[in-house]
């Protein structure tokens, strides 16, 4: 057993190393463009955000339709600190994390009284109101109002032979690995087990001595922290924030990513992040191709694919792609075992 486990660990490290080095090498050799490197970085950023939502909704059972709000807070904290206060970009990540933890914790306190549909409703309201909050007149000095804030992508330090896209890929990748590692350990701990216990049966959990209120509020905070870090990274590599890029679309994208990738699954969160970015970038072209090849009189829009994917998945694969793959793998193993 021990040997198998350490073997698996070495395999994981190797895989991570390949995932880190391959795009950089490919880009150095001219096989993939800087634009592709940026796309890969954005996928990883969304994976972190989907993981954040998954911690709350998948593992703890609190449904949020408004996590775009925390994404926006993280993005704006980073952008404002860099643009108005000239802080170095890397120092904004922990600050964004801390602010989002506090914001999430505070939002989580009233949310304690809400369950299921009601929590979904409150967070849905939050998601709709986000752009207006960002345009609030007293914040305009900081946030730049409707215009938003333009940033400049940071260059690699110490004379590293990387351009800014490649450098940011390394940064995003390392941050993501760290955050997934923390999440895995957290879920594997006492706290993680109490999260799932609350989701599965709140009353039983409380009779076992779990402080439900505190656990739920802290989970909200941690979840917001993850999404906030993702938002900050997004602002830095996308070089732009504006109120209208944080409409309800962001919250819905994260939800779609979680459901498609896999609810309550770390691997599923990665898949979800990839899915969100692929759809965002390529769905327009894909949908146009689809409507042309089917000779439809109208252009299909990406959201139609989102919607159909959501409804189909609920029916066909309620555990998402990650769950579906796991079930498939289990079936193959059982068959080969017999």
């Amino acid at each position: 057993m021990g040997a198998a486990k350490s073997g698996r660990r070495i395999g994981l490290w190797l895989l991570l190393l390949i995932l880190l080095v391959a795009p950089i090498a490919g880009s150095k050799l001219g096989l993939i463009s800087n634009f592709m490197v940026l796309q890969l970085s954005l996928m990883i950023v969304y994976a972190i955000a989907v993981l954040g939502l998954n911690l709350l909704t998948g593992y703890n059972g609190q449904i949020s339709l408004g996590h775009g709000a925390f994404f926006a807070i993280g993005a704006y904290v980073a952008a404002v600190l860099i643009d108005r206060y000239d802080l170095p970009w890397w120092s904004t990540l922990p600050i964004a994390a801390a602010s989002c933890f506090v914001a999430g914790y505070l939002f989580g306190l009233p949310a304690l009284r809400l369950e299921g549909h009601y929590l979904a409703l409150a967070t849905f309201a939050l998601a709709i109101a986000v752009p207006q909050i960002l345009k609030y007149r007293h914040l305009e000095n900081l946030t730049g109002g409707v215009q938003g804030i333009n940033l400049i992508k940071p260059d690699a330090p110490f004379g590293l032979p990387l351009n800014s896209d490649q450098w940011m890929y390394v940064v995003v990748f390392v941050v993501a690995v760290f955050m997934f590692w923390v999440a895995r350990n957290l879920l594997d701990s006492r706290i993680g087990r109490s999260l799932m216990a609350i989701r599965d049966h709140a009353m039983a959990a409380s009779t076992m001595g779990i402080n439900i209120a505190q656990t739920k509020a802290i989970t909200f905070g941690i979840s917001a922290l993850y999404v906030g870090v993702a938002g900050a990274l997004h602002a830095i590599i996308f070089e732009f924030v504006a109120p209208d890029s944080f409409r309800i679309d962001v919250s819905i994208s994260l939800l779609v990513g979680m459901v498609v990738g896999g609810v309550a699954s770390l691997f599923g969160s990665v898949l979800g992040g990839v899915f969100v970015q692929v759809i965002e970038k390529y769905a327009d072209a894909g949908a146009r191709l689809l409507s042309q090849s089917l000779h439809l009189p109208i252009d299909i829009e990406p959201w139609t694919i989102y919607g159909i994917a959501l409804i189909l998945l609920v029916y066909v694969m309620p555990t998402g792609i990650a769950g579906g793959l796991a079930a498939l793998w289990g079936r193959i193993r059982r068959r080969s075992g017999n």
Binding site: I63, W303, Y306, G307, I311, V314
Partner: peptide, 25 residues
């Protein structure tokens, strides 16, 4: 008898479909 999350997800799916179909048409 599906869990709440599935129901909410289906509604969000419907929202996305009607929204985008109006845009397409």
């Amino acid at each position: 008898n599906a869990p709440v999350l599935s129901i909410v997800v289906v509604f969000i799916g419907l929202l996305a479909i009607f929204h985008s179909m109006a845009g397409s048409i």
